[in-house]
């Protein structure tokens, strides 16, 4: 369970948000809403521990995440604006390395299966630089398939994706939630997850 209490964050002189409190329980999904520059990305990056909040605490199952360190990182996964894809490596190599980095032991056959499910059949061994924007995003999203993190933090996961891929992501999120996972995300496109109550948080 992720608990946020009285969180405040600022960039430079500008206070983005303050007094933010909420809790996210297993099986729940939450969308962060707000205009451009309202601090959605900063909130997600604070949840990842990149940004130290001005005030307030973030705790995981009652323990402050700053004290948990690497143990917290093992329970969460973050997908930001940047794909973390190396142009020089093939889609397969990219997936295998990012899985190994996040501490997941992944066999090549499973990695290929994951890439195929993301609609990259036949492109597994092509260098990422020849893939299109959307295809690169799919390679990044394939990490969701092989990760065993409880908490997904997704910043604009649907950017650059076509209708088919969006449907696939919705399916993945639904699967994750039924397995007692948690998702917190931002998006500018509609995202519907069948049979789940979507909580939302507005930053202004």
């Amino acid at each position: 369970m992720l608990e946020i209490s009285n969180l405040a964050c600022s960039r430079g002189d500008h206070r983005l948000f303050s007094g933010l409190s909420f809790a996210l329980h297993p099986g729940q999904i939450m969308q962060i809403q707000g205009a451009n520059g309202s601090g959605k990305t900063s909130l997600l990056r604070t949840l990842c521990g990149f940004i130290i909040p001005d005030e307030g605490t973030i705790s995981w199952c009652g323990e402050n995440v700053r004290d948990m360190g690497e143990e917290y990182f093992a329970r969460m996964m973050y997908l930001g604006h940047l794909n973390a894809i190396k142009d020089e490596l093939s889609a397969l190599e990219n997936l295998l390395i990012s899985a190994a980095l996040s501490g997941v032991e992944l066999k090549e056959a499973d990695a290929i299966l994951a890439l195929r499910r993301m609609g990259l059949k036949g492109r597994e061994r092509l260098p990422a630089k020849v893939l299109s924007q959307g295809q690169q995003r799919r390679v990044a999203l394939a990490r969701l398939l092989v990760s065993n993190a409880k908490l997904w933090i997704l910043d604009e996961p649907l950017a650059a994706l076509d209708v088919k891929a969006v449907a696939l992501i919705q399916e993945l999120i639904a699967e994750h939630l039924t397995q007692q996972g948690m998702v917190i995300f931002t998006t500018h496109q509609p995202l519907d997850v069948a049979g789940m109550e979507m909580r939302s948080l507005s930053l202004s």
Binding site: M77, Y78, N83, A84, I85, S102
Partner: peptide
């Protein structure tokens, strides 16, 4: 840093110093 891999490295549940 530019392609976002560094973010993922910082979030790796393993020792960043070793990395």
């Amino acid at each position: 840093y530019l392609d976002g891999t560094l973010e993922q490295m910082l979030l790796a549940p393993q020792s960043l110093s070793v990395l």
